[in-house]
Structure formats: structure tokens, C-alpha cells
Amino acid sequence: MPSITFIDPTETEVTASFEPGDTLLKAAYFARVEGILAECGGGCSCATCHVHLDSAWDGIVEPPSLQESDMLAFAVEPTPHSRLACQVELTDAHDGLTVTVAKRQY
């Protein structure tokens, strides 16, 4: 199974396996990654699953929708690499990549 490594707010690395088609949130949730609240359960409605991708993701991930960008504007200290984990759909191309969970969700 492909996997993603999450770096949680305490800088602990957690490896989460996923199936292509899963979201980053689903992978994180089932690996019980610390620091992702996902209050709305993955509906792009709460901006509490804020993560930072690194440059290895460039070009292999769909850009955020307008809805997601609007939500991200309210995340804590968003960067150009900020995403909501619930909106990032994983494929085999993402196997082995790293994601940093935002230090604070609010």
C-alpha cells in the first residue's frame, strides 16, 4: 500500500498508508495524526485540517478550488503551500511524500 509521512505539530513523524482515491484527511484520520481536527469531517467547511505540502508535491496535485482557497484564508498563517487535507485526493504519484501539519488549527 502506498503511504504518506505526516509531521505533526510536535514534529513527530507518522506514516499513514492510503488507497488511491483517499483524501489526505482520511489517511491522517485513520493514522490518528495529531493536530488535525477536521471538525466538519471532511466537507471543506471548517478549515481545521490545515496542512503544508512541500515542493515535492508541485505539479502532481490539483490546485485548490475557490471554496478551499477562501477557507484557507482563515487558517492560521497560511502559505502558498497550504491545503485543507480533506480536499487533497491521493494517487500513486503521492507515495512516499511528506506533509507538515499546521502548528495550530485556530
Binding site: 471543506c44 467547511s45 471554496q67 477557507m71 484564508a73 482563515f74
Partner: peptide
């Protein structure tokens, strides 16, 4: 409606 920024604000 389709205005996430207003909702969050």
C-alpha cells in the same frame, strides 16, 4: 451560498 469567505468571517 458558495461564499466560504463570508461564512468563515
Amino acid at each position: 451560498l458558495n461564499q466560504a469567505r463570508e461564512f468563515m468571517a
